[in-house]
Design a protein around this nucleic acid. Sequence first.
DNA 1: GTCTATAGAACGATAGAC
DNA 2: GTCTATCGTTCTATAGAC
Lengths: 218, 218
Amino acid sequence: MPQKMNPSISDRTRQKIIRTTEKLFAEKGFRAMTLRDVTREAKVNLAAVNYHFGSKSKLILEVIRDRIEPINEERLKRLDQLIEQYASKPVPVNAIFDSLFRPLFESNGTGSGPNPALIQMIGRAFTEPADFMRGMHRDLFRDLTQRYLAELHRSCPDMTIETLQYRFFLSISTMLGATIDQVILENLSESKLGPRNYDRVVAELINYASAGFEQSAK
Amino acid sequence: MPQKMNPSISDRTRQKIIRTTEKLFAEKGFRAMTLRDVTREAKVNLAAVNYHFGSKSKLILEVIRDRIEPINEERLKRLDQLIEQYASKPVPVNAIFDSLFRPLFESNGTGSGPNPALIQMIGRAFTEPADFMRGMHRDLFRDLTQRYLAELHRSCPDMTIETLQYRFFLSISTMLGATIDQVILENLSESKLGPRNYDRVVAELINYASAGFEQSAK
DNA sequence: GTCTATAGAACGATAGAC
DNA sequence: GTCTATCGTTCTATAGAC
């Protein structure tokens, strides 16, 4: 039976599988990422995946869950800090989006700066059409969404709930698009936007989404 | 040898394959969409796909290309109309985005109103990680992108080229996110945003992207 | 916990009759 | 142009030795 309580033993195998899964799922999606790919690149035995994780589905679900949960915790932590900081006054929209977007792009999972594979993997997890993903979306994001919608409503009290939901959805879409494939960005721009300048990407994303959400211009 | 010149003969088989491919690729992506699925649902023989299209890859490339090209033509037609309409003055950003987004959501491919499967398929085509898609992205969108970037530059002369590219990329991301999966939207909103209210989606999308792009608020 | 070997199923593609 | 039948490949998953 796989044990999850003692990380000091040699579940280096486990960790190698997780890291390689993250990378290959980000690049290729669920169906195109084969266990043979993963085990070959991680330099572990093919049978190790089923021993440690039970199945391919359970592997990918566990990897995604393990990566997203700390990010969502960090998001809520920052949101709470903002609410405290602004006392009872509404938090500015761009500060709310900062707390929502930045933890994703700063997340590493290993402890050393932004992790492109992880960022891309989370975008992929959202657009992955495999059936077994549906339930996970709800589990991981329902409460978070309600929390952010409530806070945005407090900041934009004149906006109808429906409009608020539409614009929040568009903001999430923008964030996901910025994570999935920077190759598209390179193709579209024919410029040097690609090389993982996440500081700039995050800053642009927060400004863009805030302006789009509030639309005080029009 | 498959013939493409005479649509009056019975390539009803061809058409049934194309429509079913569109639907299943939109739902499941390239790898998870099997030819057995397609031919079963289209009620044609399994061997018909290879007879008419040569291979699974050629099938999906042909379907995507046939659907996207008319949309891109319509986009450029509307953009030209705007330029004429505004004489030599810069075209407002929201009008530019209108010409870019609306043809996608109004596209049908069959001649009768918005086609959800087609809209979703185009979003899927962008996020599809399969290797053989890369070249197609560039073929179909490089010129279009350059054209729109040039026009947006004329409307926002004070914006640096780099910023312009970043924000245009974010606008494309927003559009794609709005096409791919309305199930996510339903999960996130727990509301009745889902039922294909494309008029509302397009209007919100254009306003959102225009405001995000210009950011005259901040 | 790691390995080899393989079962069992599904896939894309094609040969050949009609 | 449509069909049946099947080849060859690749996949997930597992049995069993070490």
